[in-house]
């Protein structure tokens, strides 16, 4: 009851043309202040729906969300959302996009000069100070996402909600963004829920990874504690057995639940003993390979 953010038996049912569709069923999750939690699960299982319920953009059919002992029933800047497609106002400059949020949230508590200062500070935090006057159309996808993050951070949210924040970015940019995010996280220690499809991203960034079962009636399948020291360095971690173990755990979960939905029970030992010379396909991610002389 006294956890910072509590997702308590949340279920949601959408009316559809083919009758009601229960997307989530009894989702339970307790998150501590300053914790970084990733949600992972296959497409369409209901991750965004969970996030939107926490954001207050959707209403749970059963159960509820409690933030600092108060029930969440509408959206608000204390739960800032970073959307996958950045959702910046295309007609506003980078500065004005953040300023719009700052003006709204600190209408009364900050003077004009302070709001200007705060806007610039948050853009500085995401290294976007050089492009204050540019329009979203004039900056790259990674930069847009940085501005989106700056806007969310500028609201000083209690919880930062990120829906596949880096999903639309190329892998190099994504790497940079993850590093930036870790840097910011070290500094501000936000409470974060992040949806991702990327196993490495989840392990690298999270304190805990929440793996969701397949929908409909999706719920929390397993929760994996990531006990790796911070600050984390992606290059060092690549060789860390613990890191690779966590990766494997997540992959195993996703694989089990999604590659074999019919769940044909084949015992692995038996197949191996019966046909020892069976061909095996081995796949390796190129970034995990290292040449040794």
């Amino acid at each position: 009851m006294n956890s910072y953010l509590k997702i308590d038996h949340v279920g949601i049912t959408f009316p559809t043309d083919n009758g009601p569709l229960e997307v989530l069923k009894s989702v339970n999750l307790d998150i501590e202040q300053g914790e970084f939690v990733s949600l992972i699960g296959h497409s369409g299982c209901g991750k965004s729906t969970v996030l939107n319920i926490v954001a207050g953009l959707l209403q749970a059919s059963t159960g509820g969300v409690i933030l600092e002992e108060k029930e969440v029933d509408e959206p608000g800047p204390d739960r800032a959302v970073i959307f996958q497609n950045h959702s910046l106002m295309p007609w506003l400059s980078v500065y004005d996009n953040v300023r719009l949020a700052v003006d709204q949230v600190f209408k009364r508590s900050k003077s004009k000069a302070e709001r200007d200062e705060w806007t610039r500070h948050n853009l500085e935090l995401v290294h976007m100070s050089h492009a204050l006057d540019r329009k979203p159309d004039e900056i790259s996808g990674g930069m847009k996402q940085r501005v989106g993050i700056a806007r969310a951070l500028a609201m000083e949210p209690k919880v930062l909600l990120m829906d596949e924040p880096f999903g639309a970015l190329d892998s190099l940019t994504r790497t940079h963004m993850q590093d930036s995010l870790m840097e910011i996280q070290t500094e501000l220690n936000n409470t974060v829920i992040m949806i991702t499809h990327d196993v490495d991203e989840a392990v690298l960034l999270s304190d805990r990874i929440v793996m969701m079962t397949n929908g409909p009636s999706a719920t929390v399948g397993e929760i994996l504690e990531i006990d790796l020291p911070r600050p984390r360095d992606r290059l060092a971690l690549a060789e860390n057995p613990q890191y690779n173990h966590y990766r494997a755990e997540v992959v195993r979960f996703l694989h089990e639940r999604h590659e074999q939905p019919a769940r044909v029970d084949v015992k692995p030992e038996e197949t191996v003993t019966e046909e020892p010379l069976q061909k095996v396909k081995v796949a390796a991610k190129p970034e995990s390979l290292r040449l040794v002389s």
């Binding site: 954001a55 207050g56 953009l57 959206p75 608000g76 800047p77 739960r79 800032a80 959302v81 959307f83 497609n85 959702s87 106002m89 719009l100 949020a101 709204q104 949230v105 609201m155």
Partner: peptide, 22 residues
């Protein structure tokens, strides 16, 4: 865009501000 409307909801913009700014 629904996302922009969601942004305005998260920011709790008033009806008038939402209309004028978004």
């Amino acid at each position: 865009s629904k996302d922009l409307i969601n942004v305005s909801r998260v920011l709790k913009l008033s009806w008038l501000t939402k209309t004028m700014k978004i």
